[in-house]
């Protein structure tokens, strides 16, 4: 698996898109910090970027890489390598190179700006950790979708659709159900609904840092326990890990049963 990871990673690192992605984040970091000159504002803008763009890029990249490396995969399948190793290796290659582009692309400008001496370092590290999680989750989902769909166009469509659903539509439905059932206690429901969407989950994790003062304005005891203590952070991180592991597990399961 390590070898596959190595080749996928090198392969991606040399592809134009990794550079584009890396340069995009580098530029974004520099623009945010040096034109704006305000760390707090930069962190907020970054959060918007991370919870919207990172999943989208993870999805598109994952699907694209899976379909584009079909030949590579087939070449490897005839080699004496375990199947799951091939897919895990490729998956980790994609997720790893994307995460690296993200962390370096944003990390370099922030480090140059003197982040390490500022208190924003925790907020910023949390952003990067969440970004890394989202990259892994969404490239994992994309791999799953691509693995289940031979047809490129269909697979691509489903992947973008699933991103759109999780990034926007889910929250719309969520909001509507909250408003429709507003007479009922909704603490548990809203926390659960958050858990079932990795984007919401990451957003919550960041909210815990950025908007804790607003979150604590809400009356519910369960909310209070969730947001007011470390419970929220712990549960969110556990759920994010589950969200990462389940697609990876399914990837292994499906790949064992698939014909090439």
């Amino acid at each position: 698996m390590i070898k596959i990871l190595k080749y996928s990673f090198y392969d991606l690192m040399r592809s134009r898109w990794s550079y584009v992605y890396f340069l995009f984040y580098l530029l974004l970091g520099f623009v945010l910090l040096f034109l704006n000159n305000e760390l707090s504002k930069a962190v907020i803008t970054l959060m918007n970027v991370i919870i919207v763009l990172v999943p989208l890029i993870g999805t598109i990249f994952g699907v694209m890489y899976f379909y584009n490396s079909k030949e590579f995969t087939e070449l490897l399948l005839a080699q004496p390598i375990k199947r799951s190793s091939i897919f895990f290796g490729q998956y980790l290659g994609v997720a790893g190179s994307l995460t690296m582009s993200l962390v370096l692309g944003l990390g370099i400008p922030f480090a140059l700006y003197g982040l390490f001496e500022s208190n924003a370092i925790w907020d910023f590290s949390l952003l990067l950790i969440t970004g890394a999680f989202l990259t892994m989750i969404f490239s994992g989902l994309a791999f799953n979708i691509a693995l289940s769909n031979e047809n490129k166009i269909k697979g691509f469509g489903y992947a973008v659709l699933s991103w759109l659903f999780l990034a926007v539509i889910y929250d719309g439905l969520f909001l509507m159900s909250l408003i429709v059932f507003e007479q009922y206690p909704l603490d548990n429901f809203s926390l659960m609904a958050t858990m079932f969407n990795p984007i919401d989950l990451s957003r919550t994790l960041i909210l815990l840092k950025l908007d804790i003062s607003a979150l604590l304005g809400y009356t519910g005891a369960i909310f209070k326990q969730f947001f007011g203590t470390n419970l929220g952070v712990v549960i969110s991180l556990i759920m994010l890990s589950l969200w990462t592991l389940i697609p990876v597990w399914r990837l292994g399961y499906k790949s064992k049963r698939k014909d090439f």
Binding site: D11, K70, F72
Partner: peptide
């Protein structure tokens, strides 16, 4: 394999 397509990079 039948179709000689390799990782282009």
């Amino acid at each position: 394999p039948q179709i000689a397509n390799f990782p282009g990079n």
